[in-house]
Design a protein around this nucleic acid. Structure first.
Length: 426
RNA sequence: GCGGGUAUAGCUCAGUUGGUUAGAGCGCAAGAUUGUGGCUCUUGAGGCCGUGGGUUCGAGACCCACUACCCGCCCCA
């Protein structure tokens, strides 16, 4: 039979309550912190990602789903790409719709998005070719470190609300592009005499992105890494101060963090603040839950006005995996009807449709089967549905207008009118 | 792109050194007499044993290829 494409999957109804919960808590966080939703197209011109994300990154280099659009008369079909991330698109929209134009100096544009992204990587635990991200972008003329701190505070609330504990916030400053370039040279010079002690992957990293040598898991590489200068040592003064302020803001908010001078992030556009939140439970090797940073200058890269920016994205798939078993179970349990109608006989069946209609009109989640079954079977179905109550409708009930409302948890049963039942459930 | 593992019922898995009708638990269906679920008991349905080739008197088991999934590397959410 035809199955899902490698790396893609169906999210089935039994998991939907978990997804909805993560989304709902995120939206509530965004509401409280003044973010508004934006939706950008799922595909864009390839050039946007090539320039925005960076030609040299693995994402652009080997992971994009790129295709040529059908040619129109007299012109070539243009190259389009399924979005591998959303920051470039959001910044594009910010520029295209001139969101900066009606703002006072200092006023920020705070946006959030939620939707699927596409990367052609090898699937494994917590990594899919179509995956879902929720993210925010703060754009404007200000680069106050309080912006970063406030976003960390929001994430802190978000994770606590989802009862995802046992996470670590890692922060670092990667500096301005100029000082980073200087540091990269320093780093390469420091690595060069030790090249023979490094693994094959690190040789490759040395050529393409020397910063990534820090991430190597090979033990012999780590002994070399320990001797290398960190980016902190060569930060430009402005970035150093910005980082100090960021930490002070976090301290003032009581948010715990770990400075990791060796944490680097893969996308080209990051400047100054970079951060990750890593989880430790229920995730495989892909344990980065949230990643983000500052991207001053990205706007200019794709043809916009000078703009400061800061944002993050988290993987919805991974966030759902990080939910505790207990939390998942209680979310699933809440995804059940309030009332399951058990009817007996043809007349009661016809009457039940009307009862169901009235209950639903009053806002009650009602389930019922359409087949006339033995009461024992109907009760078993009610139990299986995890409904709070079974509503018993037989000939007696039809005649008197009083129905048996049985609480399936406690086993207690009362005889009530429809109005009384509706009142009971509200 | 590279490495390792797995593939048997709807689900989770057993299946001896190759041997005759393919197993369990859960789930599903029916029953334990009248309009009351959960627990228990009885019975039942449900399998091209991933696909294709090979070895053999005989393959779910062994060999090869392919495919899919899982885990890891690279990289990332």
């Amino acid at each position: 039979m035809i199955q899902t494409v490698r790396g893609t999957r169906d999210i089935l109804p039994s998991d939907m309550p978990l997804w909805h919960r993560v989304e709902a808590v995120a939206r509530e966080a965004f509401r409280r912190y003044g973010f508004r939703e934006i939706r950008t197209p799922i595909f864009e011109k390839t050039e946007l990602f090539a320039r925005g994300v960076g030609e040299a990154t693995d994402i652009v280099h080997k992971e994009m789903y790129t295709f040529t659009d059908r040619a129109r008369q007299g012109s070539e079909g243009e190259s389009l790409t399924l979005r591998p991330e959303n920051t470039a698109s959001v910044v594009r929209a910010y520029i295209q719709h001139k969101m900066f134009a009606d703002k006072s100096p200092g006023e920020l544009t705070k946006l959030y998005y939620i939707g699927p992204m596409f990367r052609r990587e090898r699937p494994q635990a917590g990594r899919y070719r179509q995956f879902y991200q929720i993210g925010v972008e703060v754009m404007g003329s200000s680069d106050d470190a309080a912006i970063e701190a406030e976003v960390m505070e929001m994430l802190d609330w978000f994770l606590k609300e989802l009862k995802i504990t046992n996470t670590t916030l890692l922060i670092n400053s990667v500096g301005e592009p100029a000082s980073r370039a200087v540091y990269l040279e320093t780093l390469r010079e420091a690595i060069r005499p030790n090249l023979d002690k490094l693994c094959g992957d690190c040789h490759h990293r040395f050529e393409t992105n020397a910063l990534r040598v820090f991430d190597c898991k090979v033990e012999s590489c780590q002994t070399v890494v320990a001797t290398l200068p960190t980016i902190t040592d060569s930060l430009d003064e402005a970035s150093r101060q910005h980082f100090e302020q960021f930490k002070a803001h976090l301290d003032a908010r009581g948010i715990a963090y770990t400075v990791n001078p060796r944490m680097v992030r893969g996308l080209d556009y990051y400047t100054r603040t970079a951060f990750e939140i890593v989880g430790h439970d229920g995730l495989g090797a892909q344990n980065t839950l949230v990643g983000g940073g500052r991207y001053d200058g990205l706007s200019e890269t794709i043809g916009g006005p000078p703009t400061k920016g800061f944002g993050f994205a988290f993987g919805l798939d991974r966030m759902v995996m990080a939910l505790s078993e207990a939390e998942a179970e209680s979310l699933r349990a809440a995804d059940a009807p309030s009332i399951f109608i058990v009817f007996l006989g043809e007349a009661a069946r016809a009457h039940s449709f009307v009862v169901a209609q009235q209950l639903r009109a009053a806002g009650v989640a009602v389930a019922m089967e359409f087949e006339d079954r033995k009461m024992k079977k109907a009760m078993a179905a009610a139990d299986k549905s995890r409904a709070t109550y079974a509503l018993i409708v037989g000939d007696n009930e039809v005649a008197t207008g009083k129905y048996g409302l049985k609480n399936l948890k406690t086993g207690e049963q009362e005889s009530l009118t429809l109005d009384e039942i509706i009142l009971r459930l509200n």
